[in-house]
Design a protein around this nucleic acid. Structure first.
Length: 499
RNA sequence: GCACCAUUAGCUCAGUCGGUAGAGCAACUGACUCUUAAUCAGUAGGUCCAGGGUUCGAAUCCCUGAUGGUGUACCA
């Protein structure tokens, strides 16, 4: 035995019976000069769904189709198969009288999973199923591994995420989800372009990871011998473009945050961020409503939806309420009557609010109470308005308020979908806010926002009053496709490698 | 990070009290000229996630690890 033969024999012994048989079929074809991998192209006149939709015109006409063989029902001298292409499935009827004994034999030896091209006439079987009468066919590619079982499909979540191609072959719902994802993104893009927004791309490699409070991924540029951070948000770059005179910009792209994973968090996720000059967060609320409703209409028949068993009404207008009112309503604590930090801590102690840290300010305690008592209650779409300044270092102050800023987040089903501000355009204030963040960072807060001097300099040249908005695309897709996990709306979610 | 659960044939799953490893689909052989989860007869297919331990004997009990799921923490 030569070395090559030994390697081949060892490899063959690792194969399951089914894989070995398929490999032998391929080798037999190749030996007979019928190597399917030599085929470079084929003419396809119709897709499966078109044959079905246009049956009246196509009946008894010859069509050509191509796709994957998904099932075989042999009846002796006739056989039925299902061919799956990007639009769906069409039944193929093969008959020994039509193909001839030798060709029919070859057809019957095909395996489920094989990719084939077929020419034939469209007709309806005795049982009424629209089918194609196979008059000629080609094997386009051999499937050397058996597909998952036809009835239950592929269930194992691990395999579904790691081998998404199998998931897509076997589970039509998964295809549907990703088609809807594309439509949702396309709809949002079109809505923004219709409103004269310019689509831009800003750096994903940042020297300062700004625009959000999150731990960044670190990487290294060899030629510059420089550590770089994957962006946690495009915000500071997009606002530089507003300074530069583009009045409406948006970016749809990936953000990276080095944090825990959950059904709602993936280390890389898709964000839509936009900035519009000469408007404020009220303008952003109107725009958010339009975008969410357009996306929903594009993929759903009804704005009255069910998400994971919860009824949600996406009909605008969405409820608008302030954080102060939410905490008053759901926690029974009225922060309007709380003057300062000491006062706030006194009330927290009185009410036995859990997880209060001594260093928390009045504003942080307001947010703490919101997250603790109110957030999960915001099931119907709600713009939660007016956040504490401490947790919003890039946002314009709300006039005549005690430490609040013009910021809202959109909550649906107790979950955050979007975040928007009247953007802070006062460079001196911005510099002070960064300084405050720096203090927190030095005090050990890893997620405090680091100062971006260049961004402050940009503001010093003058940025118009501007509204900004970010929408988490993955979560929106989850909502509109009734997906329980972010992994179900990411084609290739982050997974640990198999060692 | 922590807790709990899962991991058995290519796939979907059973496996009782610790006592020879099971089914359906898929595959293979045969029958069958309108089936559609085709049907019928037969055959083959296993590192029970990995490594230790307890035991006369482990898929099953214990420990460690891997991967996934769920919850939770962190994360607006």
């Amino acid at each position: 035995m030569t070395n090559d033969q030994q390697v081949a024999a060892a490899a063959a012994s690792d194969l399951s019976d089914q894989e070995r048989i398929r490999l032998e079929k391929l080798e037999a074809l190749q030996a007979a000069g019928e190597d399917p991998y030599l085929i470079t192209k084929c003419d396809v006149s119709h897709h499966a769904q078109e044959v079905i939709n246009d049956f009246d015109e196509l009946e008894e006409k010859t069509v050509t189709v191509a796709g994957r063989l998904m099932s075989k029902r042999g009846m002796g001298k006739v056989g039925f198969s299902d061919l799956q292409d990007t639009t769906g499935r069409i039944q193929i009827f093969s008959k020994i009288d039509v193909l001839g004994a030798e060709d029919y034999e070859k057809w019957q030896s095909l395996d489920i999973g094989d990719l084939v091209w077929i020419e034939g006439q469209v007709f309806r079987t005795n049982r009424g199923e629209i089918s194609i009468r196979n008059t000629g066919w080609l094997l386009l590619s051999k499937s050397l591994r058996p597909l998952p079982e036809k009835f239950h499909g592929l269930r194992d979540t691990d395999t579904r995420y790691r081998k998404r191609y199998l998931d897509l072959i076997m589970n039509p719902d998964v295809r549907d989800t990703f088609i809807k994802r594309s439509i949702i993104i396309q709809t949002i893009r079109q809505e923004l372009m219709d409103r004269d927004f310019l689509e831009v791309e800003t750096p994903q490699l940042n020297t300062v990871a700004g625009g959000a409070s999150a731990k960044p991924f670190v990487t290294h540029h060899n030629a510059l011998d420089l550590d770089l951070f994957l962006r946690i948000s495009p915000e500071l770059y997009l606002k530089r473009l507003i300074v530069g005179g583009f009045e409406r910009v948006f970016e749809i792209g990936r953000n990276f945050r080095n944090e825990g994973m959950s059904t709602k968090h993936n280390p890389e996720f898709t964000m839509m961020e936009l900035y519009q000059a000469y408007t404020d967060y009220h303008g952003m609320m109107d725009l958010t409503e339009d975008l969410v409703v357009s996306a929903a209409r594009a993929v759903l028949d009804d704005l009255q939806i069910t998400y994971q068993g919860v009824e949600i009404d996406l009909n605008p207008p969405f409820r608008r309420m302030t954080m102060l009112d939410a905490v008053k309503e759901y926690a029974g604590i009225d922060f309007r009557e709380i003057e300062d930090d000491a006062d706030a801590h006194r009330v927290m102690a009185e009410r036995v609010v859990p997880d209060v840290l001594p260093e928390m300010s009045r504003g942080e305690l307001l947010n703490h109470c919101f997250e603790l008592y109110a957030e999960e209650k915001l099931v119907q779409p709600t713009f939660l308005m007016d956040y504490p300044i401490e947790i919003s270092p890039l946002t314009k102050r709300k006039p005549d308020s005690n430490g609040l800023v013009e910021r809202f987040e959109l909550f649906i089903g107790g979950r955050e979908y979007g975040n928007a501000y009247s953007e802070l355009n006062d460079p001196i204030d911005q510099k002070e806010r960064f300084a405050d963040q720096m203090k927190k960072h030095e005090a050990g807060d890893e997620e405090a926002q680091l100062p971006d001097e260049d961004f402050v300099e940009a503001l010093e040249y003058g940025m118009p009053p501007t509204g900004g908005l970010g929408i988490g695309i993955d979560r929106l897709v989850m909502l509109l496709t009734d997906s329980g996990s972010i992994r179900d709306v990411l084609l290739f979610p982050t997974m640990r490698p198999l060692t």
